[in-house]
Design a protein around this nucleic acid. Sequence first.
DNA 1: ACCTGAACACCGTTCAAGT
DNA 2: ACCTGAACACCGTTCAAGT
Lengths: 191, 191
Amino acid sequence: MSEAPADTKQKILDVARVTVQARGYAGLSFRELAKAVGIKSSSVHYYFPSKGELGGALAHRYTDDFGAYLDGLLTQGLDQSALLRKYTDVFRDTLRNENRMCLGGIMAAEHTELPVEVQTEVFRFSEMNIDWLARVLSMKNKGKASEATIRLHAMSIFAAVEGAQLVSRGRDDIAVYENIVAMYRTTGLLP
Amino acid sequence: MSEAPADTKQKILDVARVTVQARGYAGLSFRELAKAVGIKSSSVHYYFPSKGELGGALAHRYTDDFGAYLDGLLTQGLDQSALLRKYTDVFRDTLRNENRMCLGGIMAAEHTELPVEVQTEVFRFSEMNIDWLARVLSMKNKGKASEATIRLHAMSIFAAVEGAQLVSRGRDDIAVYENIVAMYRTTGLLP
DNA sequence: ACCTGAACACCGTTCAAGT
DNA sequence: ACCTGAACACCGTTCAAGT
């Protein structure tokens, strides 16, 4: 019983994802990518006609994977603060893995340089995050805050966490992320 | 009395700054830049031998200019909350001007792709912001919080504001920035 | 002192050609 | 169905050559 060889298309997506998280969409090269996969750059175009389609597919799968992980957390009977800690932990772990960033964050910075099909997926990623956070925030809301307020609170947490990752990276100091997130909890932005 | 013609070196820095804020360091092209200034791309190298030196000079001046503006605010007798509002307003105005981002934020996302001399300046920019915010936070601190706590609070505000700009851009909706910052005030992250 | 064209190794993309 | 080499217009960089 031999291992099934990894599908070339999946291999392309895997390598590309790690590269973009480390170096951004602009830092992804078809020639380098092809070399890592073991084909020629023109062959990458067979699977993904343009860089935009590759980036879009990449971001789409990223959102689905992360969304599935987050939804899995909801079935474990964790309380609100435990769920939010798991959430912020993911962004810390990404940073720990070779100083990589959230795909949605790094691509948001590159917004104006992205093809529309990638911009759409970056939007969808933020939407998924905000939806999930709003669900978690609703757990402890006893009819006090309106749905719009909860959603805005969710969006603010998402933005603050992305910013913590961004600044931590800009200062080349992973510890900064954890300190900032701890302060978010102290000030009450994070329940 | 004729206008003194703008110094070529300054013109390069001016055009480059706007371009990087809109499209990132990776989105800055020597050939496009040269065309906008009215010289050839090889001539840009006469003033800035490498793209890294141009980026470094750019970020350095950006930090100095913004620092001078912020220090100017301190001499106007404004109270803490007014100062912090002026601070968050700057990032909103940048976003309004053709959806541009803070140079320090967009470059932080590109961190791994930047030459060291640019990384150094991105660090210096964050340092300047944190220092200024810590001074403003100290205005109302009656010996309750330690200096380290104030500094961490300052860093958290900086990160959160950068994140608000990032997410606002990723969602292609400038109004998002103001809503998020308002929520930062509601939750108490911003005094 | 300031500018230039030509060359180099990169980039995404296209396409005719292979199997 | 999958892969390739060659060509195209881009990129930063170098450098000998101009004024």
